[in-house]
Design a protein around this nucleic acid. Structure first.
Lengths: 110, 110
DNA sequence: ATCACTTGTCAGCGATCGCTGACATTTTCC
DNA sequence: GGAAAATGTCAGCGATCGCTGACAAGTGAT
């Protein structure tokens, strides 16, 4: 359970929710600059190439999960995963009216 | 900024911090079962194959970021990224004494 | 304007991805 | 015990990854 103390010990890095790779990229870049690191230094700490840092900051959608988590750690960021008790008001995204239908038709095509 | 109200509106899905792909896999599986979904149904909602669900739940380290974020959304989970104000006391992980050194030697080998 | 530093771009290579479809195994009911 | 459902496994395919190394373009300070 997340406690009030946990909240006070940390600070939110942004109001922005992380829903897409692009969201994450912006967040990582902001945090890197906040810490005064250049891409090369961060890349070395994470164990990836500088190119990988460039691409993740641009929001590469198929970047490898493990590298992403190591990047968060290297930047002193931690992830809290929260369950929405409200059923499904979440979709503030304009597109994606019915993901099931989208997927079905996409599959049908192949 | 995360407010107290935000906390009260949601619940932590686990005490476990998400630091590794394996952590995430366990969390996703727990949440899927909590919602009473089977793998096939979840896969269709996320837009991936059932095999992908099996693998992410097993902690596949190079799974694609974008799919992971869509899975979280499909399970009604949201991500809060918090910055540790403490520099680096965080590492409750036993291993990883000096990630720079680890990376350097790994690179040397190749 | 110049210099140092940082960031972005490209090609091409081996490695790994995510997929299908069928089958084996495990779990869940009655 | 037995049927049905859920879950796990495999091979092999095209697609995409992440990498190197070099260079171009942007940024900042003097």
């Amino acid at each position: 359970m997340i406690t009030i103390a946990d909240i006070l010990r940390k600070k939110a890095i942004a109001d922005m929710l992380v829903r897409t790779p692009s969201d994450l990229g912006k967040l990582l870049r902001a945090r890197r600059k906040e810490l005064g690191l250049d891409q090369q230094t961060l890349a070395a700490r994470v164990g990836v190439s500088r190119l990988w840092i460039i691409e993740i900051e641009k929001g590469k959608p198929r970047a490898a999960l493990g590298f992403v988590l190591r990047t968060l750690t290297a930047l002193g960021l931690s992830l809290d995963v929260l369950a929405d008790d409200r059923p499904r008001a979440t979709t503030s995204t304009p597109a994606v009216p019915d993901i099931d239908a989208v997927v079905r038709s996409a599959r049908k095509r192949s």
